[in-house]
Amino acid sequence: MEDDVKKFLYVNRKAPYGTIYALEALEVVLIGAAFDQDVSLAFLDDGVFQLTKSQDTKEIGVKNFSPTFRALGDYEVTKLYVEKESLDERGLTADDLQEIMWEDEDDDWAEKPSIRIVSRAEMADVFADQDVILSF
């Protein structure tokens, strides 16, 4: 079976509420998680805005889906690559992002961080390492 596992990367480049892309990507990730593939998510350009803390959409009448990123660990999606240059250009640091953890069943349910801050060059390597890339 191990041979059938492919590396899937979902690329997120859009801010969360101005368009439907970000929410659609998240739904596809959750549904796709049932297929037991090796899934990673990449956040670059305006996509890094999806992961920011303290989003409160009460007054704009759309659903705040940012808490759902914290459920990804339950779906065995534990690799969220975030590009440092994209954060820098937007005046953000890792501290502006939500804490997203996953529980490692093989390590006595130890909590481990899902977000990995990478450079633009490292992000290019992440892309080059995939079997399938899905862009949103």
Partner: peptide, 11 residues
């Protein structure tokens, strides 16, 4: 616009 700032977590 304040509601759009709040939605995006910009204090």
């Amino acid at each position: 616009l304040g509601p759009d700032l709040a939605a995006r977590g910009i204090a």
